[in-house]
Amino acid sequence: MTTGILLLLLTGGSLLSLMLGAMPLPAIESLLSVVDHLSGSTMSRLQDYQHAVITELRLPRILLAIMVGAILAQCGAVMQGLFRNPLADPGIIGVSSGAAVGAVLAIVWAPAAISAWAVPVSAFVCGLITTLLIYSLAQTRAGTSITVLLLAGVAITAFAGAGIGSVSYFANDQDLRALSLWQMGSLAGSNDQNILLSTAALILLAIAFQKRANALNALLLGEAEARHLGIQVERLKLELIVLTAIGVGIAVASAGIIGFIGLVVPHLVRMSTGPNHRTLLPLSALCGAFLLMIADLFARLIVQPAELPVGIVTALMGAPFFMALLIRQRHSWNS
């Protein structure tokens, strides 16, 4: 039932995103334009420039929003399950910031001939290094210290911000504006390459995470209990950390820093379906795709014909939710 509702919402949101914008277009003709683009037919009666708006601007943004939103939401669900803490997500513990440093370095200094692949590779490497560093700092004899994990994430985020600021200081005016917009998160740079890369990453992560869903369920009982059930806990942690670094690195390289998707979405799904990762992970992917696509639609509509960076919209939606979550956690600690 929940899957059907999310698929219906995703379909309806995609249609709205095709129709609405600085140039409103009719629904049926927008759909026919997409069909024409995919099949080579000529059923749509839209003008050439209207057809170009659909196929070259709006459709790539929708596809990238779906892929990036699904990746971030699944990575957030995995991080929360791995560390058994509802406050953990790739942004809160600094993974996104680490990946952003790598992407910024590649954007400014990589040769143009290899920059297309240098950005995601650099983002992945720096995101992985950041994740492993934070994870090692949080390790204690009793297991993973969530307090140290979050504090290390804050420190790494601050350090990454200083690194990005330093690179921006030495960038020329053109690179500086591109970096500023990219740091706030944007789907405006969607193209065939980052859509294909994000799609491949989503498929890889969806399969890999789903294979480890039962192990994540066992980990919710505690590390000692999971070991008694035959789970190789340390190996599982390392695998999930590397997979999360891949996903976040590619998402950051494709769309910049987009916060709170990985934090908010797993909670929304968990409240409606429960903590079973076999259903939590795929439903989080669908919900994350829908939420980021709608956020991008609002970003395009609020100040049209200009547009807000989508990262600002997700922050405006996610920050109040995060504060409510902190208040709820405080009440549970005091009770």
Rank of each mutant, 00 (worst) to 15 (best):
F170C: 00
G249I: 01
G12P: 08
A289N: 12
I62V: 02
L59D: 00
I107Q: 07
I62M: 07
P120E: 12
L16H: 09
L301E: 08
A226G: 13
I195Q: 10
A200L: 10
F322Y: 13
A65I: 00
V265Q: 13
A77H: 12
S190V: 00
T3D: 00
L7Q: 05
G153Y: 06
G21E: 02
L181H: 13
V148S: 11
T140L: 05
F83D: 00
I312E: 14
Q174T: 14
V265N: 14
L16W: 11
L196M: 15
I66Y: 14
S41G: 08
P320G: 08
T42D: 06
M323R: 04
A285W: 04
S96C: 05
S168V: 05
E234L: 09
L220Q: 13
M184S: 09
S335I: 15
Q139E: 06
L291I: 10
I71C: 01
A113G: 03
M19K: 00
T3R: 04
Q329H: 11
Y135E: 04
P24M: 08
L219D: 13
T157V: 04
V252I: 05
A99Q: 02
G91H: 03
Q329K: 10
V252W: 11
G161K: 03
L283P: 10
L59T: 00
S254N: 07
I71Q: 00
L297G: 15
L205K: 13
Y49H: 09
R45A: 05
K237L: 08
L132V: 12
L268H: 05
R45D: 02
M293E: 15
A224Q: 12
L292I: 04
L176V: 12
T147A: 15
L263M: 13
P305L: 13
Q183G: 11
V101M: 05
A27C: 00
F290T: 13
L137V: 09
R141H: 09
I5L: 11
A65L: 01
P305T: 11
F260W: 12
S97Y: 02
L216V: 07
Q139Y: 07
V108P: 01
R328M: 06
A226F: 14
A27I: 00
S17Y: 11
V313R: 04
V269A: 15
A113F: 02
T11E: 02
L25T: 06
V121I: 11
A155G: 08
S198V: 03
G259L: 08
R141T: 14
A160N: 06
G311M: 14
T140N: 07
V248N: 09
A116R: 14
A208H: 06
L219Q: 15
W182I: 02
L204F: 14
V310I: 04
R328F: 06
L204E: 12
V264S: 14
A138P: 05
A289Y: 08
G185S: 10
A99E: 02
G256Q: 10
S145L: 04
L196Y: 15
K237A: 07
L204Q: 12
V101S: 03
S33V: 00
D173A: 09
F290E: 11
I231Y: 12
L105I: 15
P90C: 03
D48S: 12
L105K: 09
A178N: 13
Q193G: 10
G127L: 10
M23G: 05
R278A: 08
L59Y: 06
D175I: 03
S166W: 15
D296S: 07
V35K: 01
M293P: 15
Q329S: 14
V35R: 01
L64N: 02
M317N: 12
G98W: 01
V104G: 10
A218P: 00
H228E: 08
I71W: 01
